[in-house]
Simulated assay, not measured.
Amino acid sequence: MHRTLADLLAGLTSISAFVMIVVAMAFGYATMDIPGLIMGLLGGLVVAAVMCGTISLLVLIERHLRELAEGIRPEAARSAPVSRARMDSAAGRIEPALR
């Protein structure tokens, strides 16, 4: 579920950045014609870069952490059901016991 929401947020970030830029351009054009349009474009780019860039950075960090977490788990533990965990005293970690 979290994976789906993170992917949805990544897609919505691009759309919201485009909307922010268009709204800023429309506001600039309504106030000062062509110079306002250019100022609105620049202002919209700055606002979209800060807001949507921050969200995109967080989504990217989440994806990297997901890849790291999936790479740490052993292949057998991902595919086989876990009946109980046993403690590996030499390594100090918990490993799943396979049936």
Rank of each mutant, 00 (worst) to 15 (best):
A26C: 10
A17V: 13
Y29H: 06
G43C: 12
V22E: 00
A76G: 00
L12H: 08
V46Y: 01
G28E: 04
L98Q: 15
A90F: 05
L41I: 14
L9S: 14
G11Q: 03
G36L: 06
G40L: 07
A69C: 10
A91K: 14
L45D: 01
V22G: 01
M39A: 10
R3W: 08
A30T: 14
L45E: 03
A10N: 05
R84D: 09
R3A: 07
E95S: 09
L41W: 12
M32E: 05
I94A: 15
P35D: 04
L5T: 02
S79M: 13
E70W: 08
G53Y: 04
I61Y: 02
R73Q: 13
R66L: 06
V50L: 14
A90N: 07
C52Y: 01
V59W: 03
A80V: 08
E70I: 10
L60W: 07
F18S: 14
V22M: 11
R99D: 14
V47Q: 01
L9V: 15
L5R: 00
A80K: 11
G36A: 08
A24F: 12
G43V: 14
V47H: 00
E75D: 08
A80R: 08
I38N: 05
R66M: 05
L42N: 02
P81C: 07
A77M: 04
T54R: 05
A30P: 06
I72A: 14
A91L: 13
E62S: 09
A91I: 07
A69P: 02
I38T: 11
M32D: 10
A17T: 10
I94W: 01
L60M: 04
H2G: 11
L41A: 13
V47E: 00
L58N: 00
I34L: 12
L58K: 05
Y29R: 06
A17P: 07
Y29Q: 01
V22P: 00
D88V: 12
M1R: 11
M32G: 08
A10P: 01
E95R: 13
S83R: 14
S89A: 13
E70T: 10
I72G: 01
V23W: 03
